[in-house]
């Protein structure tokens, strides 16, 4: 039986941004996430690792209620953002997603100009009073996405014309532009080459100063490189959660060890 509870939670040093307790997720009849508890801290990069199909992406999508868009998906349990239950009836997922941004596995720029890609979020949320404000937001976001220097001369060229790595940084900049508090990243580097990956990883590290970042990754090296906390998922269970250094050097659960040393995956 793998129903063993999670490992002891590491001592927290930052304020808690997200706290999830007893979360279960069902897809139709499939029990995808089983009784998961996780605390996500502010100004920290938290990595979710685990073999394919272990539920880490599913859990990530619970945090900004992206699962709402799937008809057969049902979420139970308690997930709180700054102490507020995000599945409360009064919560508008639109408002939630403005605070909890998301970057996807495959770069998905809109078929619009680079400028319009970034300005999309601020426009719909009314973050800019006028064109000048918007220009400032676009520049700021592109700088934060570490792509400003590459695109500043062609802001009105289509976003789909950029290279893969550039596209993904554009998507990160786009997510940042709506001024979120948390950034969820679903395997953001899986479609990128090593050089682009390195650039994105560097960016993630920089983003930590202002956001809590949750990243789902297949690559353990990546988790080790960018995260401070790591959660290991296996078959829908959260097996172990703690400081990254501890998980990678001294895991408590034998399954974690097996995965890290390459025996399951």
């Amino acid at each position: 039986m793998y129903d063993t509870p999670k490992a002891e939670t590491a001592v927290t040093s930052n304020e808690i941004k997200f706290s999830a307790n007893n979360v279960d997720v069902y897809y139709g009849d499939t029990h995808a996430i089983k009784n998961v508890d996780v605390q996500i801290e502010a100004n920290t990069v938290t990595a979710f690792i685990g073999p394919s199909g272990c539920g880490k992406s599913t859990f990530l999508r619970c945090l900004n209620r992206m699962n709402d868009t799937i008809d057969i998906c049902r979420v139970e349990g308690d997930i709180r953002l700054d102490g507020e239950d995000i599945y409360d009836k009064k919560v508008d997922p639109v408002q939630l997603r403005a605070k909890v941004g998301m970057v996807f596995q495959k770069p998905n720029p809109f078929p619009k100009s680079i400028y319009d890609n970034i300005a999309y979020g601020p426009r719909i949320h009314g973050l800019a009073k006028n064109k000048a404000d918007l220009d400032v937001i676009v520049e700021k976001s592109l700088r934060r996405g570490a792509i400003w220097d590459e695109v500043k001369d062609r802001l009105h060229a289509p976003g789909t014309g950029l290279s893969g790595g550039q596209q993904q940084r554009l998507c990160i900049a786009r997510a940042v532009a709506t001024e979120p508090e948390v950034l969820l990243m679903d395997e953001p580097c899986s479609a990128l080459d090593p050089i682009a990956t390195a650039q994105v990883e560097e960016l993630i590290d920089e983003l930590r100063s202002q956001y809590s970042v949750v990243i789902v990754t297949h690559s353990m090296q990546q988790a080790a490189r960018v995260s401070q906390k790591t959660a290991f998922f296996h078959l829908g269970n959260l097996v172990e959660f703690g400081d990254t250094s501890k998980i990678f050097t001294n895991p408590e659960d034998p399954r974690t060890e097996s995965y890290i040393t390459g025996r399951i995956g």
Binding site: D92, Q95, H125, G126, V136, K140, E179, P180
Partner: peptide, 23 residues
């Protein structure tokens, strides 16, 4: 924002339960 593009967040979305008139 304009003086310091790298600076901190310039906008607070407020509580997720408080629906603004814009929303």
């Amino acid at each position: 924002i304009s003086t310091n593009p790298q600076g901190g967040r310039g906008f607070d979305h407020g509580s997720i339960t408080a629906g603004s008139s814009r929303l």
